[in-house]
Design a protein around this nucleic acid. Structure first.
Lengths: 210, 210
DNA sequence: ATTATCTATAGATCTATAGATAATGC
DNA sequence: ATTATCTATAGATCTATAGATAATGC
């Protein structure tokens, strides 16, 4: 009865699978290795999850939700005095989320293409919400534009800007290391500097300055 | 002597490998499938290239050069009246390059981590050049800042901005499709709109407007 | 009785090579 | 003689399951 001591095996397998799949992707991950990481015999993996594909789908489903909702809450649930403040605060919260989950974007980006059929219903549902969020932002944004405060922009494009700026550098950690070394700093500092850079970029894009 | 008719087999294998590896990555690609795509027996693949890994390294080496040099020429070899024009023109050329090579960023991003040892010398050499390019831009940029024309910025960060904005959306074509559909357009239009968006974003980031 | 776990192995898939045969270049 | 090509197969790796045994819950 090691129940509380080291979780149950079913959960241990799920967690090991999460690590293995996130690090290596579907094709690179091996069920034998997952069992090994979970500290169980290989047969247990199939006992609880039937197949590699099935286990993988659980993980991918989870991660797709996680990443899409991180974007949604960034643009919907954020606080600030003005629309721009809310957008910027949301973007920065999303940036922090990305930094805390550095393997997440690569994993999702890679596996989505191979699992379109399975993911479509999920994506449609979440995107439907996202759709509403973006349209609401657009309406509010356009009022600022009409008052000459913000530069014209499509809200979808702003979302893509933010997500691109936040996520992409995490996909190239080795390049960041080399860049950092060349400029006498380290990857973490470079990433921290990016946060300020991204805030400046978004504000500059939106605001009409006089 | 079908020499000129359908290339030689050695070349056919290389090209088939390029497609297979770009689409599926190292782990997902199969040598049997590469031979099939090349229209040769499987044994020929090993006859010419000895091993899957060896064949893969040829492709990866090629692609790493291609993508790094696309960034370098964007920031070094571009034309324009002012520094900002040169940066923007380079960024847009890089954007077009990305659109023309949509599988490239995903492939390189994915495989770099698994091949750090083999890639390091290449990366160091190219990055050494990139280093110089960035430092030269920084000096020129700072003169504009001193004259109150440009907002303060680190050139490295601007490069990361541009590459992130250009490359990231190509990593999520399925998401672009859904977004486009929700906003009554198509992926290609969305991508075309991004080009204008990115130009605006870069200009806004750099320029001090009065 | 049911659920959890293990050992052993089948069966599929994949990379790589051995060894024979055909084509090519002197 | 050397280079190119094919057939056949070894050997490794990997997913999945069968079937026995132990633990757990009534």
């Amino acid at each position: 009865m090691a129940e509380s001591k080291e979780k149950n095996k079913e959960q241990a397998i799920l967690e090991a699978a999460e690590q293995e799949f996130m690090e290596k992707g579907y094709a690179g991950a091996k069920t034998v290795r997952i069992a090994e990481r979970a500290g169980v015999t290989h047969a247990m993996l199939h006992y609880y999850y039937r197949s590699k594909q099935n286990l993988f789908e659980k993980i991918l489903n989870d991660k797709v939700h996680l990443i899409l909702e991180s974007v949604l809450t960034a643009f919907e649930g954020s606080e600030g005095d003005t629309l721009l403040d809310r957008i910027v605060n949301g973007a920065l919260a999303h940036f922090d989320f990305m930094v805390r989950n550095p393997l997440l974007p690569r994993f999702v980006i890679n596996e989505v293409a191979n699992n379109a059929k399975f993911l479509n219903p999920i994506a449609e549902r979440i995107m439907h919400v996202g759709n509403g969020v973006i349209k609401r932002i657009q309406i509010e944004y356009d009022q600022h534009v009409a008052r000459g405060e913000y530069q014209p922009a499509e809200a979808v494009q702003l979302v893509l800007d933010v997500v691109s700026l936040n996520a992409f550098p995490l996909l190239i950690p080795e390049v960041l290391d080399i860049l950092a070394r060349n400029f006498g700093t380290d990857r973490d500092t470079l990433i921290a500097n990016r946060k300020a850079e991204i805030e400046k970029t978004i504000r500059a894009r939106v605001l009409v300055k006089q």
